[in-house]
């Protein structure tokens, strides 16, 4: 059974004049890391909201098609009831703090309390989430006093603590420095190893190339491409979708033009593939 199955989803916001998602169908297997990329306003955040049930339960609008998380049809459940199955990290970190908890520890424990976990479980999971995100030293601080980057980690830790089988992350590293971002991707990789399914909307394509199992490119709410990161990121049409080749791919393309890259070898989008291509040119 797939972890997520979307069939012919078309959605228009109540104030929208055209659909933000158009006839979108997608099947994500358990344990898969699927990256969602595309220019701004292409529907990435809308898709994230739809998977977590925020659409159609919070934003109503025109919703057609179906969205299955495991066996659960999101249209039949409240957002809060879905919380156990789907975790969502939203784009702007400060806005997703609960506003009811005074310390980082309690903020991360908040979701577990809502799900009625007992004290031992709350303690164990919150402590583990703090450690994994490197926030242990901040446990007793007010989450409102943290920087944007740290708040982004709190939001991630809060989802990790609940440990839903499906995680949806909407650009979770925007405010982090390069090493902080790398840390987040390492955490995601670890979660994947534990069998979690991850949907990741992201602008930092360098990481997508390295870590994603599959990538979809959205434009005007439609899936334009759906393939492995290698295929998508070297796709000749990607510029028309508001994206761009990575410097690795550009270097490979130039090398090919100069005859330094084997003719039958596809262009690369990761460090190792570029190195291999150049060495065997």
């Amino acid at each position: 059974m797939p972890a997520l199955e979307i069939a012919h989803l078309t959605y228009t916001y109540p104030t929208g004049t055209r659909p933000s998602l158009q006839d979108l169908s997608l099947r994500v297997e358990k344990g898969e890391l699927l990256a969602v990329i595309g220019e701004n306003n292409s529907g990435k955040s809308t898709l994230c909201y739809a998977i977590a049930g925020v659409i159609p339960h919070f934003f109503h609008g025109q919703f057609n098609g179906s969205m299955l998380v495991g066996k659960v049809n999101t249209a039949d459940q409240t957002i809060s009831a879905l919380a156990e199955h789907v975790g969502l990290v939203m784009q702007i970190p400060g806005n997703q703090l609960s506003g009811v908890r005074f310390t980082v520890f309690e903020e991360i424990a908040f979701g577990l309390e809502n799900l009625g976990m007992n004290r031992q479980v709350i303690h164990a999971r919150t402590t583990a989430a703090l450690a994994l995100t490197g926030l242990s030293a901040f446990a007793e601080r007010s989450p409102y006093q943290l920087s944007g980057g740290q708040q982004q980690k709190v939001a991630l830790a809060a989802v990790l603590a609940v440990s839903p089988s499906l995680l949806v992350l909407d650009e979770p590293t925007t405010f982090l420095d390069p090493q902080g971002a790398r840390q987040v991707f390492d955490i995601l990789l670890e979660l994947k190893r534990q069998g979690k399914t991850i949907i990741l909307a992201e602008q930092r394509l360098e990481w997508i190339a390295e870590f994603a199992d599959r990538v979809i490119v959205l434009q005007n709410g439609e899936i334009m491409l759906c393939d492995t990161p290698e295929e998508v990121l070297r796709h000749p049409q990607i510029k028309r979708m508001g994206l761009d080749w990575l410097p690795y791919t550009k270097a490979a393309a130039m090398a090919k033009e100069e005859g330094l890259w084997a003719k039958d070898r596809p262009l690369s989008s990761t460090f190792s593939a570029t190195v291999a291509g150049l060495q065997n040119g």
């Binding site: 957002i79 919380a83 156990e84 400060g94 577990l112 009625g116």
Partner: peptide, 27 residues
Amino acid sequence: LVEMEQRSIALEIRGFNAPGPTTSWRT
């Protein structure tokens, strides 16, 4: 206004209105 909207979404997705019984860490 934007913040309020986002925060109410955040409360929902974190199960604030979850149907089952809740617990409290701070006793």
